[in-house]
């Protein structure tokens, strides 16, 4: 197989160093070996261990605990996505209207979290959220009493939102940067109140960025493992933790595999549903 394409490519495009398809073969071989084959193993084991059949899926969807965790996983992802949209929207908008120096500073704030390793950042959230942590000290100092944050779902959402926020801000900013602000001015000069000009002109134009960021955040949140494992408690277990538990602690590859397949299918269904929204974004970009 690797022998045939270069000859064909070399004949048709003599100026290039080799056939184009041949160049992707090394990466594709690695992809099949380290991603394709392992995922296939997961799918196979979900149907074959301990015996062939769909018993693992029957077990998964027939056990109330699993369904609670599945629902919670989607719920947490939805909350995180919503929190990201709400906090990223004004921030990204601000990035488009301030001067260059201020914009540099705002971009810096988005990128700084990437400078510290992801695990260290989650540990920082442990420091901030724990019962004797920074947030609770501040609340106590302000006379508001203390809130239990660590080992709760709220703590998980707060931590995950911070980790995922840059993935929302950056696509949103790249779309907002391309919006012609004169359109909003035109709406204003035609008598629209500021709120109406925003809702009918600016918001629709910025929606492609919201969709793109939201889908990335939601998909990444579905598979999150480290943050929920460190910030969450027994009552905020997510599907990824449950799957790890099945495989590593209970050595039940069949049930763990079935959970993995559920996560995989959910991810790819979401991606497929989001594809038309992404395409719409490209079209709008072209029209501009």
């Amino acid at each position: 197989m690797p022998a045939a394409p270069p000859a064909k490519g070399a004949r048709k495009a003599p100026r290039f160093i080799a056939g184009p398809l041949w160049l992707t073969v090394p990466a594709l071989v690695l992809l099949v070996a380290v991603v394709g084959y392992p995922l296939l193993i997961i799918v196979l084991r979900s149907f074959s261990e301990p015996a062939w059949g769909v018993q693992n899926y029957v077990w998964f969807f027939g056990t109330p605990v699993n369904l609670v965790v599945l629902q919670r996983t989607f719920e947490v992802s939805a909350w995180v996505t919503l929190a990201c949209v709400i906090s990223a929207y004004p921030y990204a908008y601000m990035m488009t209207v301030v001067g260059p120096a201020m914009r540099m500073l705002l971009i810096l704030c988005v990128l700084v979290p990437f400078w510290v390793s992801g695990v260290v950042r989650t540990m920082a959230w442990v420091i901030l959220l724990q019962d004797s942590g920074v947030i609770n000290s501040l609340l106590k100092w302000a006379g508001l009493g203390t809130v239990r944050l660590i080992r709760t779902q709220l703590g998980v959402v707060i931590g995950m939102t911070q980790v995922l926020l840059p993935f929302m801000i950056l696509p949103l900013y790249s779309v907002m940067r391309g919006i012609d602000l004169r359109l909003v001015q035109a709406a204003r000069s035609l008598g629209a109140r500021p709120s109406r000009a925003f809702l009918q002109v600016y918001l629709p134009l910025s929606l492609p960025g919201v969709y793109a960021g939201a889908i990335i955040v939601f998909i990444l949140a579905l598979g999150f493992y480290i943050t929920p494992a460190l910030l969450g408690g027994p009552r905020s277990v997510l599907l990824s933790t449950l799957m790890q538990n099945q495989v590593l602690s209970l050595l039940n590859w069949g049930r763990g595999g079935a959970m993995g397949v559920v996560l995989l299918v959910a991810t790819f269904v979401l991606l497929a549903l989001a594809a038309p929204l992404m395409r719409q974004r490209h079209k709008q970009g072209a029209r501009r």
Partner: peptide
């Protein structure tokens, strides 16, 4: 079309849920 499909395939490691991939790799 071919380059689009291949590009999508090569990018998939970014969207596959981390734990699922990790457990698959662990098995292999």
């Amino acid at each position: 079309t071919a380059s689009g499909i291949l590009r999508m395939l090569l990018i998939t490691p970014m969207v596959v849920p981390g734990v699922v991939l990790a457990i698959g790799i662990y098995a292999v």
